[in-house]
Design a protein around this nucleic acid. Structure first.
Length: 204
DNA sequence: ACTGCGATGTCCT
DNA sequence: GGACATCGCAGTT
């Protein structure tokens, strides 16, 4: 590899979850897999918080499944859903407060061969990682990784491209039935790896 | 382009 | 027993 990549400090994740969600855009997620590594650029995120957010898994308090969300920031919260899919989140805010950012989509920077192998060769490039469960499959993330630290050198997030405010769009979240009105989804404008194009009312 | 729907297992009430 | 922070495929316009 060309350069040394360093994990973001825990202080990055200690911020309010909406701040973390927005600031994660453009950052690089690095997965070391044996002698290879996969690097992806985060292009779409959603924030979830135990307070005021009925769609958050921790909305009704701590359970076995959501326990990691209550733990220290900078760890991975992975859950299984729809009988066949995994979704990955980054735990934010202080220990004892349940808050996390769902990584919904990313763009592969390095390790495309491994990603194609994980996802299946039939897919088009942009369909490899343009959704939360697709991303987990691309990176081989399962509940085995639930709770791991992002502050060490195996799986971590590092500084990437700075995204100008003008190139960040904020909308309501996708695939939930409660808390629909909260504009807690962030994505990079015009990025082709974003999971869903949204019709913005009033735009031509 | 969009719409509907089946697959499938775990957690929580 | 119901819900589920989804995906891929088939059918339609």
């Amino acid at each position: 590899m060309a350069e040394i990549l360093k994990p973001l400090p825990q202080s990055f994740y200690l911020n309010p979850v909406l701040t973390v969600a927005e600031n994660l855009l453009g950052k690089l997620l690095v997965i070391e897999t044996g002698k290879n590594q996969i690097v992806v650029k985060i292009v779409e995120t959603e924030a979830y918080h135990e307070n005021g957010d009925p769609s958050c898994h921790a909305h009704k308090g701590q359970t076995k499944r959501n326990a990691v969300m209550f733990g220290p920031p900078g760890h991975l919260y992975v859950y299984f859903t729809y009988g066949m899919h995994y979704c990955m989140n980054v735990v934010a805010e202080k220990e004892g407060t349940a808050a996390a950012v769902l990584i919904r989509a990313a763009e592969v920077i390095e390790g495309i061969d491994i990603v194609k192998k994980n996802r299946g060769e039939r897919h088009k490039l942009k369909d490899l990682t343009n959704g939360p469960a697709k991303l987990c499959e691309a990176l081989s993330i399962t509940t085995e990784q639930n709770g791991i630290s992002l502050l060490e050198n195996k799986t971590f997030i590092t500084k990437g491209q700075m995204i100008a405010k003008d190139n960040i769009l904020q909308t309501t979240r996708i695939g939930i039935s409660e808390g629909k009105e909260l504009p807690w989804r962030f994505y990079i404008k015009d990025n082709e790896f974003v999971s869903k194009k949204v019709k913005i009312i009033g735009e031509r």
